[in-house]
Design a protein around this nucleic acid. Structure first.
Lengths: 122, 122
DNA sequence: CATGATACATACTTTAGGGTAAGTACTTGT
DNA sequence: ACAAGTACTTACCCTAAAGTATGTATCATG
């Protein structure tokens, strides 16, 4: 989680967009590169950290926890750690995270329409 | 439109994500900072370039056309230029772009639920 | 006694996206 | 003759997000 410069225009614009545009607000939450994928994997049930890692082989560990932490910080997922060793940590969707599933579904529906040639894209 | 390095891992991962995850495919299309906002403004009807500019005062001209070109290139919007001087250019949603509106709506619905305290986020 | 599995952390580098500032071409209005 | 409005373009800079590489703690097992 990188430090942010409050003075930069990009941050001011971010502010503007967040106030003016609900969509941008959502993008802030699920815009990270691997976030939608993580959310998708959690939509099919709770997963351990290592399960997620194996499910998404292309992501690095740094990116995985970074996004998990952000999603947790944003209240979209819930982390549960059993105080055992070796560690046993599970992640699951919160109600807010579950509420995002219709968004994910709408996106997937559009993408599949594109794939099926209903729309001509790119 | 910046040149991209084909060799970079980020591009490889992009490929992976695009194939594996329909949501990421959508993000690619509407993930630009001002794209959702542009789409939103076009959802209420055709707009001239200058109208969009005035409607979104915080965006710079460079960003505005850059994103308009990308959206046009992706087939989400249609550009119509009348060969007159001063120029008269109109942008409107394509059918693919219109098909994205449910996604936008689902996002907005979620954002408003968060605002109304239905979910606890951040 | 050292290797593997668990779930991370941390220092450093790269890259893509976004922003700034300025210029272009053509015509109408003052 | 000069500013203003139209729709861009182009060269350069800066930053946030992504990636690389390596390290940590604890215990069980061969």
């Amino acid at each position: 989680m990188t430090a942010i410069k409050e003075s930069s225009t990009i941050q001011e614009n971010k502010q503007y967009a967040l106030e003016k545009c609900p969509v941008t607000f959502v993008m802030e939450k699920i815009g990270g590169y691997w976030k939608p994928i993580i959310l998708y994997h959690l939509s099919t049930g709770d997963k351990r950290y290592s399960e997620l890692k194996r499910a998404i082989p292309a992501v690095t560990e740094k990116m995985l926890i970074q996004h998990l932490k952000q999603l947790e910080g944003d209240g979209l997922i819930i982390r549960e750690a059993k105080p055992v060793v070796p560690p046993f940590v599970t992640y699951k969707l919160s109600s807010a995270g579950t509420g995002l599933l219709p968004v994910i579904d709408a996106m997937a529906a559009w993408a599949f329409k594109v794939k099926d040639g209903v729309y001509t894209v790119k």
